[in-house]
Amino acid sequence: MITVKLYSAIRKYGGKEVMFEYVEGLTVRDIVEKLKIPLKEISIIILDHFDSTTDIMIDREVKESSLIHLFPPMAGG
């Protein structure tokens, strides 16, 4: 199973955590589309402990037991 964790404003699309069945070739984009989250609302994607720009991360393939964190634009400090 794939675990997707959602935070702050984008929890409206699925709560804190959503699980998905693994299918070969599944990408982060596929999951975001299934959750119906507009891409512009996602600013940070962390897949299995790795993050980079959303352009790079969005088309990464997931693994059978992947953990994905999706965050909207945020800041603090």
């Binding site: 935070y7 702050s8 940070i44 964190h69 945020m74 603090g76 400090g77």
Partner: peptide, 17 residues
């Protein structure tokens, strides 16, 4: 960030990320 994230959750929005 300044129009939505910070007003809604404050700086503590950072804890999870």
């Amino acid at each position: 960030v300044t129009g939505q994230g910070l007003p809604a959750y404050g700086t503590a929005v950072l804890v999870n990320v």
